[in-house]
Design a protein around this nucleic acid. Structure first.
Lengths: 254, 254
DNA sequence: CGAGAGCTTGAGGTTTATCAAGTAGAGTGG
DNA sequence: CCACTCTACTTGATAAACCTCAAGCTCTCG
């Protein structure tokens, strides 16, 4: 189970045996967290860096009117708050979706390892930058695409991210998010999410039942929402080669 | 002009004279960039870190159908790509809105300074984390709020960010963004942006003419969109005290 | 002074939200 | 193990938010 992080990092940079051992030493004891439980809340001072080894969590904010906006899905191998430690208080919450296996890494452990293992440091940096790139793409997704493309895009992204940590088999993966979860992620109502998923099912693009999502035709689903995985900055995976942005010819001015 | 960065960083952490000198040394020569010009494009390899000293720029992506999504506004004192250097290619563009004064900082200069000045390093980290926090809040804004609140929220944020670098006088500041710019930022049509701004004007909340935005009643505008500045993580400013999140009582589970 | 872009407003259409109600599942306590 | 409860899922009907198209005006820039 601890190998998801190493597996993910090696999607970016080759690691030596020493690097791997150093990473292993970060996760001495794993903690079980039930589903639908907050790991850290808005206003808390960040002390530990949380790492998800198994299960799904999310980053979210609550608005004054009770609305929830989910800003990130955290899957096995993802750090919850790698880069928050300088800030004196959390400006958002992190909560589990399904039951999770989590490691709480004290800050000094991260400091120690980055002081001694430059490859690991680079790889952790890469994690943080990719998380931010994903956030940017989510903004594009919500701001610029209609509901059906939005949800299709989310499914494509999860497929690639989970594949990078070995959690996909036969284009199927665990999907414990409820339709209200998806609604609060995509800025849609749960009714509309339901109808949109029905549409994706009717088009023969996916099946979703008993918390398992299957992409029936990956290429067709990607084409459906114009999916471009460049923002994931994958290198050593089967999607890593995709580097061309054919429509990108004219930005403004220049 | 070079002092905007120092002024901004001191909003977070007190700097010594040596720290300030070190920061000054980062910006030996300033470059003028015309309005509506790209500083760096999707697909480019990031070489320099760009710092805006004067003028406005933005981070944006182009979609295959020609739609533009703006993901960040860069104002004086903002780094464009402080944290991108590990990634081998840009996944988005950065372009100016108005004419800008920009510094191109080579990577090694950042490395040198962070190796020797821990306070400066902390302050630069803080910049990067706040930029990410702003991005999260934009996601909340676009995903969770109606058009009028969205735009009001943007105006509140700009007021605070520009105030932190001394670019506000009498609740007025330079606003070179066009209505199409705002539309591509907020995920709205330019027609709807126009009507929404008309509404904010009619409510006596703002005036906007000749590229100058004036907030007529700051407290009322903030109340209008439930603005909470905690995500800016300001400390040494007049807004820094705001730390309470009154409605935050129940996340999920616990 | 001319051209292009931005601003403004109207009309009509599409997408998405809200309200409502019934069904199905999952978890809980006896 | 079963009944109960709560949440999620599903579908229909209606309403609101927002978009598109279109046209005229204004501003800015060359």
């Amino acid at each position: 189970m601890q190998d998801v992080l190493i597996r993910k990092l090696e999607g970016f940079e080759s690691l030596s045996d020493q690097d791997r051992e150093a990473l292993q030493s970060l996760m001495p004891k794993v903690r079980k967290v039930p589903a639908r439980t907050d790991l850290i809340r808005e206003g808390d001072a960040p002390e530990y860096v949380h790492l998800v080894l198994d299960g799904y969590a999310c980053r979210y904010k609550m608005l004054p009117d009770g609305q929830r906006q989910i800003m990130a899905y955290l899957v096995p191998g993802d750090f919850c708050d790698l880069n928050v430690f300088i800030l004196d208080q959390m400006d958002h919450n992190i909560g589990t979706i399904s039951a999770c296996q989590v490691v709480d890494i004290p800050r000094h452990a991260i400091d120690d390892i980055t002081a001694r293992y430059p490859h690991v440091t680079r790889a952790l940096w890469w994690c943080a930058l990719v998380d931010e790139a994903v956030l940017r793409e989510w903004l594009v997704n919500i701001g610029g695409r209609p509901a059906d493309h939005r949800i299709a895009h989310l499914f494509c992204e999860l497929l690639l991210r989970l594949e990078a940590v070995g959690r996909v088999s036969g284009n199927s993966f665990d999907f414990p998010f409820t339709q209200p979860d998806i609604a609060d992620t995509m800025g849609l109502s749960n009714v509309h999410v339901n109808r949109t998923i029905r549409e994706l099912r009717a088009l023969g693009l996916i099946t979703l039942r008993q918390r398992t999502l299957t992409i029936l035709d990956v290429e067709r689903l990607k084409a459906y929402c114009n999916y471009n995985p460049n923002y994931l900055h994958l290198r050593n995976t089967r999607w890593g080669a995709r580097r061309i942005i054919p429509w990108l010819s004219s930005g403004h001015g220049g």
